[in-house]
Write a protein that binds this DNA or RNA. Structure first.
Length: 274
DNA sequence: CGTATGCCCTGCGCGC
DNA sequence: TGCGCGCAGGGCATAC
């Protein structure tokens, strides 16, 4: 599932192919993926527009087109946005194809169909609620132990639920929350307000560290993810708990357990994480 | 407001 | 071998 490191990798790999490219035609093979405005208006507004020299990203949102309204894309669980030559066979679940002036195509493919596009107008129409309310980027200065401590105060929800909440911090998903909490030595089910100052500091630091590392490895290919050039990420083999249930903890050797926290499959070493 | 739950959807893995 | 079922999950709506 694309989280911040994967979306950032897609941004970086798409940029050289998209910068300055005109959208000659938008082929809406499955119009449901256009969330705003209606598909016909979307098509009319995007055709003829040009990709900016710099693609944007906020949290897990990709902002590939700017000027006179911004094209916003969210990949959710299984979305893929990549460049392909027109000769490449159109794979199953390819829902949108942008024909570029270079002759290349920007393709959107999404098996589970949760991903989609918004065109956000300069007056704010079309802005996804989640994007408007996004918390700080963990790799920017606003993210700190002080900020996190203030967010956790008075909250009884498990720390994992709070970290998955995009309005608290942008970009963490199920994989990297489990990894960050393992590295911080904190059990995901602990009520947020009960964490010590030292634990909060470790979580703030490890959340940033794991995302930064994962970006360097070009993300995690767990099931369906690949980048803007259809290439997988290498962070999978660096994962310490996620998808390792029953396997020995790298630190203490006891088996990683899989439980359910905040409605999500959760991987934890109950010896290292208290 | 904070928290919990269910829904969207497809493919896969499991049990029989 | 084949079928049906449950599970997977990010964001959002809805209920409490």
């Amino acid at each position: 599932m694309p989280e911040l490191p994967e979306v950032e990798t897609v941004r970086r790999t798409l940029m050289p192919h998209l910068r300055g490219q005109r959208v000659e035609r938008v082929d809406l093979r499955k119009p449901d993926h256009i969330r705003y405005p209606d598909p016909a208006t979307f098509q009319a507004e995007v055709e003829g527009r040009t990709f900016a020299m710099e693609l944007g990203r906020r949290g897990k949102y990709l902002l590939p087109l700017e000027g006179g309204g911004t094209l916003v894309c969210h990949l959710r669980m299984s979305g893929r946005l990549f460049v392909a030559s027109p000769e490449a066979p159109v794979e199953k679940h390819t829902h949108v194809i942008f024909h570029l002036s270079s002759g290349q195509q920007l393709r959107f493919q999404d098996q589970r169909t949760f991903g989609g596009f918004h065109l956000v107008y300069p007056d704010g129409r079309g802005m996804p609620k989640g994007l408007a309310e996004l918390g700080p980027e963990p790799l920017e200065e606003r993210w700190s132990a002080d900020y996190l401590a203030a967010e956790l105060a008075g909250r009884r929800a498990p720390i994992k639920a709070v970290l998955l909440d995009q309005s608290t911090v942008a970009g963490l998903g199920n994989i990297y929350v489990d990894e960050a909490l393992f590295r911080a030595g904190v059990h995901p089910a602990r009520p947020a307000a009960e964490l010590s100052r030292a634990e909060v500091e470790r979580i703030a630091a490890e959340a940033a560290a794991v995302l930064e590392e994962a970006i360097r490895y070009r993300g995690t290919t767990f099931s369906l993810y690949f980048d803007g050039e259809a290439r997988g990420g290498d962070y999978y083999r660096e994962l310490r708990v996620f998808d390792r249930s029953g396997e020995p903890c790298y630190v203490c050797g006891s088996p990683i357990e899989k439980t359910r926290v905040a409605g999500r499959g959760t991987h934890v070493c109950t010896r290292c994480q208290r």
